[in-house]
Amino acid sequence: MASVTTKKHHTGLDYVDIDTQYCQARIFMQGAQIDQFQPKGKAPLLWVSSADDYQAGQGIRGGIPVCWPWFGMHANADWPQHGFARTRQWQLNSVQMKNDIAILKFVLTISEQDKQYWPHDTQVSIEFELSDRLKVSLINHNTGSETVTLTQALHSYFAIEDIHQLQATGFNGSQYIEFGQGPYPQEGDSVRFDKETDRVYTQLGTEQQLHTPNGTMMVKREHSQSAVLWNPWIDKSSWLSRFNHDDYLQMVCLEAANVLEDKLVLAPGERHCLTTEIYWLD
Results as ranks from 00 to 15, higher is better:
1 M>E: 10
8 K>M: 12
14 D>L: 13
16 V>N: 10
18 I>Y: 08
18 I>P: 10
19 D>I: 00
19 D>V: 04
22 Y>G: 10
24 Q>T: 15
24 Q>L: 03
27 I>A: 06
29 M>Q: 14
32 A>L: 01
35 D>M: 08
36 Q>G: 00
36 Q>I: 09
45 L>R: 02
49 S>Y: 03
51 A>D: 14
52 D>A: 06
54 Y>P: 08
63 G>S: 09
67 C>P: 09
75 A>W: 00
85 A>R: 12
89 Q>P: 01
105 K>T: 15
106 F>L: 05
106 F>K: 01
107 V>H: 09
112 E>W: 00
119 P>A: 07
121 D>I: 00
125 S>V: 00
126 I>G: 05
126 I>H: 04
127 E>P: 06
127 E>N: 07
128 F>H: 13
130 L>A: 12
131 S>E: 08
135 K>E: 14
136 V>H: 06
139 I>G: 02
140 N>T: 12
150 L>D: 03
154 L>G: 07
154 L>D: 05
158 F>T: 09
161 E>A: 13
170 G>S: 05
171 F>T: 00
176 Y>L: 03
179 F>Y: 11
186 Q>H: 05
186 Q>C: 07
189 D>Q: 06
189 D>M: 01
190 S>F: 03
190 S>H: 08
193 F>Y: 11
193 F>A: 09
194 D>R: 00
195 K>N: 14
195 K>P: 00
199 R>Q: 15
206 T>G: 11
208 Q>E: 04
208 Q>F: 10
210 L>G: 08
210 L>K: 00
211 H>I: 11
212 T>I: 09
213 P>Q: 00
213 P>T: 01
217 M>K: 06
220 K>S: 13
224 S>E: 09
225 Q>C: 10
226 S>E: 02
233 W>S: 10
234 I>E: 12
238 S>V: 02
241 S>E: 14
245 H>D: 15
246 D>G: 06
248 Y>R: 12
258 N>W: 01
258 N>G: 12
260 L>M: 14
265 V>R: 12
267 A>V: 01
